[in-house]
């Protein structure tokens, strides 16, 4: 195995493109090193992207924020303006692993790992975030929602790297939230999760909504029926019941050591309901 520490994205892409063997991109390393340890991956080349200019920066852009691919979860959590704008996205990222893992793990890495249970991804999809991807022909933009293609699989090619994720500006009276279910209070992989992003009308009804579930299908699921249930309404009991049913209906989970399909289906709806109430309160709504 060789280790490379390029200083530009172009250099990084060139290294990846020119390597015939197995490659891994290293940001926080909290997935890659576990794979190395387990022997599930034996890379010929590791490309560490942390020294590439700009990849560790959070930069205001067009009323939103561009987040470098090597920014750690801890750094996201310490960025007051980002937390104020997209609290649900940040809380999703901050749920990944322990304090120690937060010191290293990145949002982009969580996305590129391709896990259906990734904590950062539902919030990003709910936020309509986009990723900037550097490749042999230059940068391209891609909706985060289009990146995961299946368990462990993404639309990022082997000679490409995600360099940043863009979280857009948002209208007034907006709020987002992310909740996951784990058996303990920390340190577990999500058994089911839900992100909700809302914008309210001036009368307190929900004008726009995106509801996204994690760990209940091969990729995150955008539940348009759930959003439809919310739009035009307040999150009263009847609306939430419709939302919960729509979410459970959208689940296509597996039984595994972390939970049964039945459990995931039931709990995903519960989480969506609870996340809706948090997002609604963050948007300034009151029941």
């Amino acid at each position: 195995m060789r280790y490379a520490r390029p200083e530009t994205a172009t250099e990084a892409v060139g290294l990846l493109a020119n390597e015939a063997g197995v490659t891994r991109v290293l940001a926080g390393g909290t997935d890659v090193l576990v794979q190395l340890r387990a022997g599930s991956v034996t890379p010929d080349l590791i490309v560490d992207i942390k020294r590439i200019a700009g990849l560790r920066a959070i930069t205001p852009e067009a009323g939103g924020f561009r987040i470098g691919a090597a920014v750690s979860g801890a750094e996201l959590g310490e960025h007051a303006a980002l937390c104020a704008l997209w609290p649900g996205v940040v809380e999703g990222c901050n749920l990944i692993g322990s304090t120690q893992v937060q010191g290293r793990a990145t949002m982009a890495g969580n996305l590129c790992n391709g896990s259906p249970a990734a904590d950062a991804v539902p919030g990003l999809v709910a936020a309509e975030a986009t990723a900037r991807i550097e490749g042999p022909t230059g940068p391209r933009e891609c909706a985060v929602a289009d990146i995961p293609t299946g368990p462990g699989k993404t639309a990022v090619q082997r000679d490409e790297i995600v360099t940043s994720i863009f979280l857009p500006a948002r209208p007034a009276r907006s709020g987002d939230a992310y909740l996951r279910f784990i058996p303990r209070t920390e340190m577990d992989i999500a058994v089911a999760s839900a992100a909700v992003n809302l914008t309210l009308a001036t009368d307190g009804t929900i004008a726009a909504a995106r509801v996204v579930l994690g760990a209940v299908a091969p990729t995150v699921v955008l539940v348009t029926e759930a959003a439809t249930a919310l739009i035009g309404n307040r999150p009263d009991a009847a609306t939430l019941a419709t939302l919960q049913a729509a979410c459970s209906a959208a689940c296509n989970p597996i039984d595994d050591k972390r939970g049964t399909a039945e459990f995931r289906t039931q709990v995903a709806g519960v989480l969506a309901k609870r996340a809706t109430l948090i997002a609604y309160a963050r948007a300034g709504g009151s029941l």
Binding site: P183, R184, T185, E186, M187, D188, I189, K257, R258
Partner: peptide, 29 residues
């Protein structure tokens, strides 16, 4: 009582040989 268990598949493979999925209590629990 709450979370710890050896989980085997039908062929007798241990599915959770690590602290990620063999869940001992953490401080916040």
């Amino acid at each position: 009582a709450l979370n710890e268990e050896y989980i085997h598949d039908a062929e007798g493979h241990l599915l959770n040989p690590g602290f990620l999925d063999y869940r001992v209590p953490v401080a916040s629990d």
